[in-house]
Simulated scan of single mutants.
Amino acid sequence: MLAFLSKISVTCFFASYFVVLVLELLRFFGKIPGRGLAVVVMMSLGLFTHVCYLVLRVVARGGTSEIGLLASWYDWSLLLALGLAICFLSFYLRRPDTVISLFFLPLILATIGLSLAVQPMAPFSRSEAAEAWRSIHGLAMAVGAGGVLTGFLAGIMYLAQSWRLKNKRAGSSLRLPTLETLARLNRQCLVVSTAAVTIGVLAGAIMNLNRWGQVGWTSGGVLFSFGLLVWLAVATCVEFFYAPASHGRKAFYLTLASLGFLVLALFGVLNSSHGRTIPTEQVSVISEDAA
């Protein structure tokens, strides 16, 4: 199986995305049975080969190479193209009747083309790569935490506004946004925080691989951050696929639980080496153990 996957090249997912673009252009020539299913299948195939290609690049480098893992402009361009492809498929599954493909797919193909143009550029070392991914990890986790906190505040305001409407006090001098606005903000914050924490956890894993040669899943910070990611993913699915009578209250309870997971994650980070600067002597010991 691994020998078969090792034959995957950039051409595989580039061709898949190009076929999707052609299929989307065919919608202007009339209704074609099965076209939508073909788009989903080809995009899924493209994403699968895209991910496999990047993972195999990491595996091929191994733990002995001085070259950083996913630490070149070539790798980062392909990661950007992968992110755009995932966003496109997510939007397409929700609204297959739109023509967002004509905006996303040319940009995805152009980004892959850019990766080939910058491929000759020398990659960064492991230490440089660890610092770069550390910056991405910190920024993404900060955005994710901000999203959770903003969603929580939106939920608090939703409950306050709901209570005021029931008690006919909404016309007082203290004005709050409408329930629809607050519910929409809560949902948007949930999506943003889920996406940001996903990026943060992946960047943290790559950072640890570059620094120590292992992810360190048993570390408190990593474990709780991954738990937060799993919960946010579950909460996002519940938000979009479960529709009770009170949407705003549902979103608030989900965000409240997300806040609890965020507090646990921060507690785990601050009470482990994950959230503190490790002395040089300790880093060398960890590196020797990982080797």
Rank of each mutant, 00 (worst) to 15 (best):
A3E: 15
L5T: 08
I8T: 15
C12N: 14
F13I: 07
A15Q: 09
S16V: 07
F18N: 15
V19K: 06
V19P: 02
L23N: 00
L23C: 09
F29H: 10
G30W: 11
G30T: 07
K31H: 15
K31L: 09
P33W: 02
G34R: 05
R35T: 03
A38R: 04
G46Q: 04
G46P: 00
F48I: 04
V51C: 04
C52Q: 12
L54G: 04
A60L: 08
R61M: 08
T64F: 12
A71F: 03
A71L: 09
W73A: 12
W73D: 10
W73N: 10
Y74W: 15
L78C: 02
L80K: 02
L82I: 05
L82F: 13
F88I: 04
F88D: 05
R94A: 14
D97W: 13
T98P: 00
P106V: 11
P106F: 07
L109W: 06
I112N: 01
V118D: 08
M121A: 08
R126K: 15
E131M: 12
A132L: 11
W133S: 01
R134S: 06
R134F: 04
H137E: 09
A140N: 01
A140E: 03
M141R: 06
A142D: 09
A142F: 10
V143M: 06
V143E: 05
V143L: 07
G144M: 05
G146M: 06
G147L: 11
G147M: 08
G151R: 08
F152G: 01
A154N: 05
G155C: 03
M157D: 09
Y158E: 02
L159P: 00
S162F: 07
W163I: 12
R164S: 08
K166V: 10
R169S: 11
G171H: 13
R175H: 13
T178N: 06
E180K: 12
L182S: 03
R184A: 10
L185E: 00
Q188L: 14
S193P: 08
A195L: 13
I199G: 01
G200W: 03
V201S: 02
A203K: 01
A205Y: 07
I206W: 03
N210Y: 04
N210W: 04
R211E: 11
R211H: 07
V215M: 10
T218K: 14
T218C: 05
S219K: 09
G220Q: 08
G220F: 05
S225A: 10
F226A: 06
L228E: 04
L229I: 07
W231Y: 15
V234D: 09
V234A: 14
V234H: 06
A235S: 14
C237L: 15
E239Q: 07
F241C: 10
F241H: 11
H247F: 02
R249L: 13
K250L: 11
A251W: 02
Y253I: 09
L254M: 10
A257G: 14
F261V: 04
L264Q: 09
G268S: 12
V269H: 03
V269M: 08
V269R: 02
L270A: 06
L270K: 06
L270Y: 06
S272A: 09
S273T: 10
S273A: 10
S273K: 03
G275R: 02
R276P: 00
P279M: 09
S284A: 15
V285I: 13
I286S: 01
E288P: 03
E288N: 14
D289V: 11
A290C: 12
